[in-house]
């Protein structure tokens, strides 16, 4: 379990991390999501004890990272943004060194190194010098280092950068496998990756937490309610007239007009698909397309992390007014609500 309490990292007047609080429970796959420069790496560096926070506290399994660094660091395997490799060593030598550095018991070392090499598919590369490896393999050596000894918490900063699609799939598979027995925290600015492996997402923007929830619930919260998108085979004027007849429709909006068809966005407090069908049938207007409008995680992310403070604040407000709280994300929701109350915060 990791508890991050009111973390602040200040460089002069610039807040790289701004009062960030969250809790990662055991067995979770936690995704840090944020645009470049949002403070993902800084937060990870503080959590692993590489940097010290200006204010706030990080507890790893109950050990404060600054007060009891050795106990806390023993629980963590960390792959930084740039894999920390020594180019003058072979993969095997390097992992030997890491095993000794991490203080793994001598009689188990060989075994643990074998396992790490197997899991990251580095068998053929073991006797080669790291400086001769390609970027993808280096990334994997870094990953092998992080999972070496199977620490309880594995923190990976953009683990799939520089890998080819096949390797990306392999790494995701590995993360899924690890998540059965470990707490895994990964950071990324790639949504599909977070979507694929994480069961919890934490979105950071300008060093502040804007959302912390499961990906599904984030989408649900930000989805445009019971909104429907329809394409009707008629002119805009006819569509206008037709929609007046539909009962229970609160508002509508023309998105697009093509020759002979019109694309409409309809919102209503309840499901209007049935009413719309009968109205159209009566008027003899064919419905070419009808689907509920949902917001994808991508849209959630883009809105929440928009450069424009107003857009981001609006997105955060939508999120908090939907009022549903997932277990384990209380800290995150608190922060979001606070943020939505005061736009200048974000």
């Amino acid at each position: 379990m990791i508890e991050v309490k009111d973390l602040v990292k200040r460089y002069g007047d610039y807040y790289a991390v701004d009062h960030l609080s969250f809790t990662v429970e055991d067995g979770r796959v936690f995704g840090f999501l944020g645009p470049n420069g949002a403070g993902k790496s800084t937060t990870m560096n503080i959590m692993t004890g590489y940097l010290a926070a200006t204010e706030g506290q990080v507890l790893i399994e109950g050990h404060d990272i600054l007060e009891e660094p050795e106990e806390a660091k023993r629980c963590i395997g960390y792959l930084p943004e740039l894999p920390p490799l020594y180019p003058d060593m072979t993969v095997e030598e390097y992992l030997q060194f890491c095993a000794e550095l991490k203080g793994l018991p001598a009689q188990k070392r060989e075994d643990l190194i074998r396992q790490a090499i197997t899991l990251t598919h580095l068998e053929d590369m073991a006797p080669r010098l790291i400086q001769n490896l390609s970027k993808g393999y280096r990334q994997r050596v870094g990953l092998a280092q992080a999972i070496l000894g199977f620490p309880k918490i594995i923190i990976l900063d953009e683990p799939t950068v520089g890998l080819d699609p096949k390797q990306v799939v392999e790494i995701r598979e590995l993360i899924r496998q690890l998540s059965k027995e470990h707490t895994v925290i990964i950071s990324s600015h790639i949504l599909s990756e977070i979507r694929a492996v994480c069961d919890h997402v934490l979105i950071i923007r300008k060093g502040r937490l804007v959302a912390c929830d499961t990906p599904e619930s984030l989408e649900e919260k930000l989805s445009a309610g019971d909104s429907v998108e329809a394409v009707l085979k008629c002119g805009p004027a006819q569509a206008e007239k037709l929609l007046c007849a539909v009962a229970g429709l609160s508002s509508h909006q023309t998105l697009d007009t093509n020759e002979g068809s019109v694309r409409l966005a309809l919102s209503a407090p309840s499901d209007v698909r049935e009413a719309l069908f009968y109205a159209c049938a009566q008027a003899g207007v064919p419905i070419l397309e009808l689907r509920p409008r949902t917001t994808t995680l991508e849209q959630v992310f883009l809105d929440l992390t928009d450069e424009d403070d107003a857009v981001a604040a609006r997105a955060a407000a939508t999120l908090s007014t939907s009022g549903r709280t997932a277990a384990g994300a209380e800290a995150g929701t608190d922060r979001t609500e606070e943020g939505s109350g005061d736009e200048s915060h974000l």
Binding site: G49, Y50, E70, E71, K73, P80, Y86
Partner: peptide, 14 residues
């Protein structure tokens, strides 16, 4: 320079 200090400083060693 090589950022290997991240490995050393995040390892359980003083």
């Amino acid at each position: 320079h090589n950022r290997t200090d991240q490995l050393l400083l995040t390892a359980p060693a003083t």
